[in-house]
């Protein structure tokens, strides 16, 4: 293909106005058409483009290529109004990753099936699992088992308590509504479909308080074993819903508040390695 354009070439003034964006739509469009075919004008226009602008554009392209797009959850959090740096830190928690959420859905499907068709045992099963879902999520959101770079992260100025609470809030927001929804879909559960929320929150608060002493996964295992023992023994005695008796619900609320108080008082110990490995 010929590069001849009938001898006409853009003058320096037109080129500089085009680069500044002052050439006007008609002149700009025809110059663009011309530039596509004329190598000499393409060479000359390069001199008019400011170098810092080019560098900045190149920088952005390179940044996009290396840094990649933020994760889906991170983008969602930013859209919900969470500051971008916090969103990045929250989205790193293993229990907020897609694989964990898939695990949650699978869990809910089977807990729902068991609760719907399993009679009294199904009810026990639901009461056993539902309050432990947020506990497991929080246990795998913070600490050396959830974050292999925990020790390096501790040595940074970012407040450890803030990180723990941000991730806890995100885990609760991600796990409680699906469990609640699944529970409400099973008619056999009646009022227990909602009442489990109180022990769930209380156990989560206890986990946070205990994580100032031992790593969260260990505490979660202990809380899980304790809760399992309570529900199964209630179920064997007569009625699994005994763990949701009104007096106990009050006790859960009180325990939860106490646990949060302990967390506030002992939050300093979150800033160091609790038990050295």
């Amino acid at each position: 293909m010929s590069t001849s354009t009938g001898g006409w070439h853009a003058d320096e003034d037109l080129l500089s106005r085009y680069v500044r964006g002052d050439a006007g739509p008609v002149a700009a469009a025809s110059l663009e058409q011309h530039l596509l075919r004329c190598a000499s004008c393409r060479d000359r226009i390069a001199a008019h483009v400011p170098v810092p602008l080019l560098d900045a554009a190149w920088e952005r392209v390179r940044d996009e290529a290396v840094a990649g797009r933020p994760r889906r959850l991170e983008r969602l959090l930013v859209r919900l109004g969470v500051p971008a740096p916090d969103a990045l830190l929250v989205a790193t928690a293993p229990s907020l990753r897609t694989s964990w959420l898939v695990g949650l859905v699978v869990t809910l499907v089977f807990v729902g099936l068991g609760a719907a068709y399993g009679g009294d045992r199904g009810l026990t099963f639901f009461l056993l699992v539902a309050p432990l879902v947020p506990v497991a999520g929080v246990a795998f959101a913070y600490g050396p088992d959830a974050d292999p770079s925990h020790e390096a992260a501790l040595a940074t100025p970012y407040p450890a308590t803030r990180l723990l609470l941000l991730r806890t809030a995100a885990v609760l927001a991600a796990s409680l509504p699906p469990v609640l929804l699944a529970a409400l879909l099973v008619p056999a559960l009646s009022w227990t479909a909602v009442a489990w929320l109180l022990p769930a929150l209380s156990l989560t608060a206890a986990l946070l308080a205990a994580s100032t002493w031992v790593r969260p996964t260990v505490t979660a295992a202990a809380l899980g074993a304790g809760w399992t023992a309570a529900v199964t023994s209630a179920s064997r005695a007569a009625d699994p819903t005994a763990v949701l008796a009104p007096a106990l619900l009050v006790a859960y609320a009180v325990l939860g508040c106490l646990a949060l108080l302990v967390l506030a008082l002992r939050s300093r110990s979150l800033t160091t390695l609790g038990s050295p490995s």
Binding site: P94, R97, V106, L113, G114, Y117, G119, F140
Partner: peptide
């Protein structure tokens, strides 16, 4: 699988499956 709670999920799945079959 590679995610840490997979064992718990598997236990829940087996229990749910077993209980649902008592229907």
């Amino acid at each position: 699988t590679r995610f840490p709670g997979a064992g718990l999920v598997a236990a829940v799945v087996l229990t749910g499956w077993t209980l649902a079959c008592t229907a």
